[in-house]
Amino acid sequence: MAVDDVSFALERGQLVGLLGPNGAGKTTTVSLITGLLTPDRGQILIDGQPLAGDTHPAKRRIGLVPQDLALYEELSARANLRFFGALYQLSGKVLDEAIRSALTLVGLVDRERDLVKTFSGGMKRRLNLAAGLLHDPDILLLDEPTVGVDPQSRNAIFENLETLKQQGKALLYTTHYMEEAERLADRIVVIDHGRVIADDTLAGLRALAPAAPGMPVSLESLFLSMTGRSLRD
């Protein structure tokens, strides 16, 4: 099912959790926003301006943290970041400063010269996040950024995201882990079969479902009630 009718807004300093079962259209939506896919119709607006074309200047305002560990394992952490920064026209001292800042945020400064293939899964995930931050984007798209990491690294990533939110970044976060959305998201958008079926705060979503006194409904229960219990492969 391709995305058919998805419309939502992302505000500065806000983290929106994009939830949906397998095949709902989460990754396709992220791909459309970043220009990896070209929509048949509809548009992506950034500050009211439509995003169009591979080299549109507004693409510089978007940072992508893909679901895959999109890193060159044969290169050092620093060499990876030098390359990804250069894609956004960063060079010289500006690039050096951006690398230092990103590595500091994710706690990998002391490993910058090590090859990525020597990193643990959690370190790679943090470096994956750093690569999306180098050019100081206003909008950060995170596609399941904590898949396969240990609790410590996951917690570190959460703290990084909180920091970014405080800096005024707009974050779009896709995940299958409901507790992550509960902890991080200011607003939750649920899509299924390519359509938005819910778009509200966690409290707003909870208000939609009856619950026992003193026992708030879990996000997972809400999610299952909205998307059904049939398996999605």
């Binding site: 791909s31 970043t34 220009g35 990896l36 591979d54 080299t55 549109h56 200047p57 693409k59 510089r60 978007i62 992508l64 893909p66 679901q67 895959d68 560990l69 999109a70 890193l71 060159y72 990804f84 894609l87 956004y88 690569a131």
Partner: peptide
Amino acid sequence: QRGLWKRLRSAPVSR
């Protein structure tokens, strides 16, 4: 396959 192409394509660099 490793997703690196996504980073390349999401950057403002022409084909």
